[in-house]
Computed example of a mutant assay.
Amino acid sequence: MPKKGNRKRLKFKAGDVCCESVTVADFANADPAVVKSGRVKKAVANAIEKEVKLLCGLEASQGAVEEVLSSASSVGADAVGSSDDPEDDEGESETKVTRKKKNKRKKESSESSDGEDYPVDIWLVLSSYIRPEDVCKFSLICRSAWTVTCTAAFWTRLYRRHYRVEVDLPFRLQPDCIDRMRCLRACVIRSLFHLYEPFSLRVSKSPALPESTPTTLLNSKCFLFWVKKVSGTRPEALWEFNFKFKKQVGHFKNGCAKSLHLPKQYEEVHMNSDSDCCVLQVTTLNYIFIPVVMGLTLTLFTINVSTDMRHHRVRLVFQDSPVQRGRKRGDQGGTQVVLDPVHSVKLMDWWHPLYPLLTFT
């Protein structure tokens, strides 16, 4: 009796195969010694596919052919071993091309039926119900929602919804001045920190001295400085040292920020000369003479305990140019400013209620 290993596998050529030449040995329930892969060979399946296409046409046979190919591939995944014939490689390449075409058609159909495009008027109506802290989330829904947040009508309605007569607002933030288009967005945001309770509480809870030294001022350029004598809770007068900084704008790989462009008719609404500015206000118990630092870059900012262990001490170091990223901060050389003893330290962004407003004409 011959051994099973001596049995020859059936060989098929794609050109000679027809419906009559398909035998039992070509199917999964055949003797595994005869058909080692235990599945229909891809060369046979491709030949049958071509014959069916010729008889019935491509569209009529597409479903049946795909069913045969899918069943054959599923059985082949569980089988042990595979055929090394060149006809199998040709069948695999044809199957991959067919799958790519199907995936491409599915992707195009899904993109064409993805969501609805609503007019801007609907988003303008919905914006009347948006809380001030949710404006950013609302603008990220779609381009139309973002366009609504650029309009003067959106910011004017937001101001009128939260305006209260009993709140004492600066002159520039009064209703008569809000009607101007210029810097409307910045003025509304500033007024919300007076009118809107969640925003005002956020500012009022800030301590007189920060818990940790702020690092956002590093590499910022000081372009304005002034000293002011104020009266506080103490019988002696206090001195306010104000440093106005321009924050360094981040650089992008392409040289510009990837952002949406504002509509030209609303560029005045979003104008804000102080958008990247902040004011460092240090209040001391005594007047201290300091050198001129306007035009210099802040490279070191520390808040430590004073030598008498009763107050705090602020140290600022300015350089001619900003420190490059990755290098050690320069505390040697440059212009040094030491304020001691310190009563309070405040870092105010442009929207802070105590931020000094410029005069608009």
Rank of each mutant, 00 (worst) to 15 (best):
E267K: 10
T361K: 12
L354H: 11
V34C: 03
V338Q: 09
Q265F: 15
T283Y: 00
K228I: 01
S61V: 01
H194R: 12
P132D: 05
D276G: 01
G5P: 08
V314D: 01
I122G: 01
C19Y: 14
D89L: 10
C277Y: 02
K229R: 13
K3Y: 09
S21E: 11
L173G: 02
A33R: 15
P86G: 05
T307L: 08
A25M: 06
T215K: 00
T284K: 01
E108G: 09
C183G: 01
D168Q: 12
D121W: 12
M309H: 07
Y163L: 09
H251E: 13
K102F: 11
V34L: 08
L354T: 00
L140E: 08
L218I: 00
V22D: 04
A43L: 09
R160P: 14
I48D: 04
V165I: 08
L195A: 06
K4N: 14
S212Y: 15
L69N: 10
K102N: 05
Q336I: 12
A45G: 11
V75A: 13
R315V: 00
R164N: 10
N304T: 15
V68T: 05
P291G: 05
F27T: 06
H251K: 06
P170W: 09
N6P: 03
D85E: 11
L54D: 10
E197W: 13
T307N: 14
R164V: 08
T151F: 11
D168T: 14
S73K: 09
T149N: 02
E166K: 15
S70D: 12
T216Q: 09
E111S: 15
A208F: 06
W226I: 06
L55H: 10
H261I: 12
T156H: 06
K229M: 02
K42S: 10
G15R: 11
F225M: 04
E268Y: 09
T213N: 10
V68C: 12
K244G: 01
P353R: 03
D331I: 15
R234A: 13
Q332G: 12
T98R: 13
L316I: 02
T213K: 09
P291F: 04
S37Q: 14
V68D: 07
T283S: 01
G250W: 13
R164K: 12
V24S: 07
V35E: 08
H352F: 00
A237G: 04
R143Q: 12
Q174V: 08
F301C: 00
I290A: 06
N272G: 04
K244V: 00
R157H: 15
Y196P: 02
S109P: 03
H312A: 13
V227I: 07
T156C: 04
V230K: 00
V80K: 05
R9A: 02
P214Y: 12
T233G: 15
Y163H: 06
W146P: 00
R182T: 15
D340N: 10
K3G: 15
K102I: 04
L126E: 03
Q336F: 12
S21F: 07
D176P: 10
S112I: 13
T98N: 12
S128H: 13
I290E: 11
A257K: 14
A45T: 05
F318V: 00
V17L: 14
K246W: 14
C19H: 09
H343Y: 14
